[in-house]
Structure formats: structure tokens, C-alpha cells
Amino acid sequence: MSFSPKFAILGSGSIGTYIGAHLVKAGYPVVFVGRERLKQEIQLFGLGISDYTGSSFTLAPNQVRYVTDIKEAKDSNIFLITVKSKDTIELGKSIRSLFSLEELSKIIVVSFQNGVRNSQELASVLPELGDRNIPGMVPFNVVAKGKGKFHRGTSGELVLQSNEFGDRINSYLKGSGLPSMVHKNMEGVLWGKLLFNLNNSLNALVGIPLREELSQRGFRKILSDMISEGIEILKLSGIKPARAGKMIPWLAPIILKLPDFLFFTVASSMVKIDPEARSSMWEDLHHGRKTEISYLNGEILKLADQIGHKAPINRKIVSLVQEAENGSGTVKYSAESLSKELGMI
């Protein structure tokens, strides 16, 4: 398969725009497909990209091709999907409508989404892709700051399924200055990431930046119990989470319960978090959007229901987030008040 890479970012919000901006800066053709609101913002301000290390760059409005109709991405051959998980199947159908069967044999699709089932859902509507349907994982957080500015607040490497096509995309990403790697066991990686992503819901409920949240041992104890419950349910379900990079899922509950001085020492060697970082679920609640709770903590509940496990902590967390989505719950819990809600004290 020989072609000149032409990227389409489908669902260009915080993550997609951050990744796509690096590809543009590296000289690749990129079309961003997303919302009209962000299109207008970028047409006015361009893009300002920054990260927790202090690195930054800008792209002028005329350097960014941002559209709202997927039909304008038909000239692309690599599709990076960053839409919400609930939109995966519909997006797959939209990709299918763009191409003939022969054309489908020449494109690569990468899922850079939260959750564990997106690649499988894409395969259900795009079975012809085969190994060109690449599961991916995004470990870091990106916050939209307005006026075209996007800030990456945490460390970590993008991960892609290791095969002929995943390896090729990985080389493009790394060559664009993005931290990226490949892994042979993406199913395990995605479940491992989901365990860490359980913190998305906690961060959304407490309504403070990630570093401030994790600096409080009370919140860390809650997260430790959420992850421990998840690990137990995965084990009973015969699922083995895998590590990718420095984040080790099965050690997380132990590390989180360490006294502050020990936790800061150990955690700082595993992940970097700046004061601005927040979870994507917090951002969704803040902007009145539906969250991905059913694709994160909700996946733990699906497994729990299959094996007859009550999963009381994650079940209550899901309920509280759903209340917040409906406007009837709070997003400013203290560690003590949330621990009481969860029956931990």
C-alpha cells in the first residue's frame, strides 16, 4: 500500500484539533471536520497549541482547513476519529457513504476515542477495512481555552495497534512531534486506560483541576476504591488490563493511597500534570453536553451485571454524573461529602 498521507480529523474538538495541528505544522495535508462554532473560532483566531512543558506554536487561520461536512474529507486517506463514543457507528456509516468498495480498500481509520469498543463498532459497519481499522488510545488531556487555544495538560504517549498500518501511522505521528508508540495488545491497553479514565467522572463531580484533586488524599482514596473495584470486576470477567508507558493499572490503587509526600514522589515519575488540566467529562458537564459516562464507568457496570457483581462505588458514581447531566446534581463535592454518598464513611 503506497500513498502520500492525507489526514482527516473527524470530530475535531480538543484532542483532534491538538493532534491535527501538529500534523499541519509538520507539513501534512489535513482537513479538520467538526462543529461550526469551532470553525468560526479558528477562522478568526487561528490555532494556538501549547503543553505542560512550556512548548507552544501557532497556526494562522489560512493554514487550517476546518470544515463541517465530512464530504469535504473525501480526498483524505487516513481518518483519525476523535468523536464521542456514542457517535462512532453513525460516523462509520458516514465514512462508508463517501467511498466505493474499491476506495475503502485504500484508506486507514484510527480510533482515538475513550472507551474499549469503538474499533469493534467501526468494524461492524466497515468490515472491509480489516487491519486498516486501527484501535488507538490517547492518554493525555487537552483543554480548549477559547479563541483557538488548546492546551495539553498531562503527559503520556499515543498508542496504536502494532501492525503494518498502525506502525506507519505511528511514524507519521512521531515525525510530527507527537509522543506516540505501538503495542501488540490494544485490547489490554484500552481496558488499562479505562481504569485510569474512571477518574474522569470523579474529576467532573468535584469540579476542580486534576492536580488539585489528586493532591488531596481523600479524593485519591475514592479513586483508589473505584479502580480497585474495576480491577476486581475485570479479573472476574477474565480480562487482563495492560500497561502502556509508565502508567501501571494494577499498582494505581496502592500508589493512590500513599501518604502525600510518598504519592507525589512516585506519581511525579509516572505522569506530569500541570495546574490547568481537567478531565474531558468535567468539560462536557461545564458546557452542558452529555458525557461519556456509559462508555467509561458504564463499561465496568456492564461487566458487573454479567457476573452478578454489585459494583456499588462505580454504580453510584454513574448515578451522580447522570444527575449532574440532568441538572439535578452537584459538581462541587468535597472528599468527605462524596465519600458519604459512596458509603465509604
Rank of each mutant, 00 (worst) to 15 (best):
G343V: 01
I293W: 09
N114R: 08
S224N: 04
P179T: 12
F150H: 06
L178C: 10
K93Y: 13
G136Q: 04
E157I: 09
Y66N: 00
S94I: 08
L23G: 06
V33C: 04
V31Y: 00
I169W: 11
R289Y: 14
I317K: 03
V266R: 00
S85I: 05
S76W: 09
N163D: 07
E121D: 15
S176W: 05
L126G: 03
D260Y: 13
L160C: 12
P61R: 01
K84H: 09
V143N: 13
T154V: 01
I317V: 13
S12T: 10
Y52N: 05
H22E: 07
K257N: 12
G327P: 11
G16A: 07
V83S: 08
A252Q: 09
S111D: 08
N141T: 11
V266Q: 03
N314Y: 03
I255P: 03
D167S: 15
V318D: 02
L10V: 13
K272G: 03
L320E: 00
W282I: 10
M186K: 04
V67E: 12
E276I: 10
I169F: 09
K193Q: 04
M270A: 13
K174L: 15
L338I: 04
K149C: 12
L262P: 09
I49N: 01
S97V: 07
S155E: 02
